[in-house]
Amino acid sequence: MLQQYGLIGLLALIAIAFPFVTVGFTWLIRPKRPDPIKNSTYECGLETIGDTWVQFRAQYYLFALIFVVFDIEAMFLFPFAVAFNSVGLFAVIEAILFIVMLAMGLVYAWKKKAMEWQ
């Protein structure tokens, strides 16, 4: 098993190094003439006004929140799916109960209009 992960590890090292190598290579051959206007923030030619950090809407957080819950759900359901052939019908009902619980959360978010992008 560890041999396969050895390959994945090597691939990870190569894959993360390769972009840096090419960018380093272009550093050798590309022109380098920075000036303050060129390096300024690109906002359609206008001067940047105020702080870059705009205040964000809680909407993003709510979507991330629902995502987290369903992510965990998937993480529990995958081993169940792998073990599916060896478990009985009662286990299926338990798994469906698990899904129904989380689906209730989805319904709650739906009813409370947490998923409306206003």
């Binding site: 987290v68 819950v69 992510d71 965990i72 993480m75 529990f76």
Partner: peptide, 8 residues
């Protein structure tokens, strides 16, 4: 895995 779920 349970710890992971609780952490989330």
């Amino acid at each position: 895995i349970f710890v992971l779920a609780v952490a989330a």
